[in-house]
Design a protein around this nucleic acid. Structure first.
Lengths: 192, 192, 192, 192
DNA sequence: GATGAATGAGACTTCATTCAT
DNA sequence: AATGAATGAAGTCTCATTCAT
């Protein structure tokens, strides 16, 4: 329960700075942005970046990891707070959507390999687990259509998150798009 | 005085081969794929690729151009055939979605700049025009919700098309996701 | 005395056109200008250029050859006309200088290897022969200083011809520079 | 707090080596010589060349810059030392001529654009300034002909410097050529 | 003979990664 | 640990030259 290795304080600070810088740089310039840019923005030497993340790929994963962790945390917080399963589910999607708009990296990383396999496994599994729970609960409460499974939800979210970048500047449009998808997720009103 | 067209045949065949190869390579490896790979797959020398498309950028645009043209053509065909505006609209989205699944490049190109500005302008405008017409007609007939505009629709489609790649292997899941979005696009049944 | 092989008339015309184009293109864009540009300006296909001059190097030499030939012809004409050896010598230098200004290629070709070895040998020898005759005659008549030999004269001319390009736009400056050198070539007024 | 300068030493040495190599390579093979050759001769990787000079153009300018600086320095030294304006002027030309023979690059760079615009501006202006001062002083003392201005002198020097490469191996010939030009620069003895 | 499409070596340049300091 | 110089593979693009038509 102690931090694994306890980096020297400045080392830890550097690592955090690098992550912050990477998040920003990759969001702004895409995955093709050079590692040098990250180092410069972080105010460290390029060597330091590679000392902390021995590969560009690993740096990417670390950034993503942090974001996924944040997302999972939010989900858990939402679950703890709310007691309306449908609302919780919707709030989570809204939150994820916002995050995608702000920290474009999630989207960017997804671009890369075409599937989320890049995610740090344990982390990804956790996200899927939480997502599954949210979905099941919402479906259980009858607020979300029954005929959608986890994989489909994930695919839908991927698309949704990506769409955010095409209307980044227009908040109301963004909300509109999200609302439409949320409407699509409502239980299908079975007419007799 | 006519024959001097014969050489062009080979050249045209090569050009087409290159486009096909580019479509495939960029779809599979992303926009970062090297031009060399395209040349190799097309079975021509690297110089030939650059003779036909003097820039990687132009090659990209050409690939996209071809696909957009195809999409526009399908839209026009649908309009000519069907007389149910709502159905036509839905069919078009389905068709575009399918296309995105097969020829992943559309997605890939969009990845690049984050907006469709890369599209050959005239072509892009044409696509928007057709899309707008389809939307307006469907909304006019009351089959599609009124509160969505062209920009939002485009953003939604962009995201949606991208999502297709996360569930490429599962056709029914793909259709399901699309259906959900289409449901979201239905007129909102205002309950009193 | 018949033309060696009698090219078909249009072939001969093409060859001349190519030479003209090459002269112009290389003069304007330097030796790095592409052979394609030459072909385009000549209004022929690139293949035709290479049929007539199987190497870029050979094309260059041909252009130069033509100019050297012209220069030799002028020298001979001057010798035939004038009977003032000093004046003839000076006129020739002026003529060469003018030519260098107009058809910059001479300069350009010299640039390349740094020495005139590129010249078509027989042609070059002829030029050196004529130049030597002009020099000797002028020195014999006491109008040109005795202490300069052919090699030095050639070097001086090379440099001088090149300098013409730095003051291309100003004719009087050009003449001035030449006059200064010509003054330097006068017999040194030996004071007793 | 001082040592962090040590690495720079190696870097500086490399930079100098690269400049030296570039000077040599461009002089020997012309401006078309590849950057790779420079790297090889300097004994560094190609990347190192580009780390120090991010463009071939910049490398060229740096080489030239160094030479122009040296020339200006010599001019200033001469001015400080000598008090015979005519002699100073002549010495400077001799010095420049020698330099052109040894470090042929000056010539080579001029080749490029046909005018010295490529020179690092401030540097070039300084050179022109010094040259102008030398000329004016020499003319003022009556040792150099009045009817030559700065532009003409520059053109004359360009030609002269270039000529040095055609008689590189023969020192006496070289001096001869220079003497001739210097003679031409003497005040014209107006005979009544 | 003419044409121009095809070729591929080679040029410049970038960037992830290594390593001496 | 941190630094940033060095490295070289790889990418885009150009161009002299070849060759099928």
């Amino acid at each position: 329960m102690r931090p694994p290795k306890s980096l020297r304080l400045d080392a830890a600070r550097n690592k955090a700075r690098i992550l912050d810088a990477a998040e920003k740089v990759f969001a702004e310039e895409g995955l093709a942005a050079s590692t040098d840019r990250v180092a410069t923005l972080a105010g460290v030497g390029i060597g330091t970046v590679f000392r902390h993340f021995s590969t560009k790929e690993l740096l990417l994963q670390a950034v993503l990891d942090r974001q996924v962790t944040a997302l999972v945390a939010e989900a858990n917080a939402l679950v703890a707070t709310s007691n309306d399963a449908g609302e919780t589910f919707r709030l989570f999607l809204r939150r994820a959507f916002e995050l995608a708009t702000t920290k474009k990296i999630i989207v960017a990383v997804l671009e890369k390999t075409g599937n989320p396999a890049t995610l740090d496994t344990s982390n990804r599994i956790e996200l899927l687990r939480v997502l599954d729970a949210l979905l099941k609960r919402a479906q259980g409460s009858g607020k979300i259509r029954q005929d959608i499974n986890l994989d489909e939800l994930v695919a839908l979210m991927q698309g949704l998150l990506q769409s955010s970048k095409y209307i980044q500047s227009d908040k109301s449009a963004r909300e509109h798009v999200l609302d439409i998808v949320l409407d699509g997720l409502r239980p299908t009103t079975v007419s007799p």
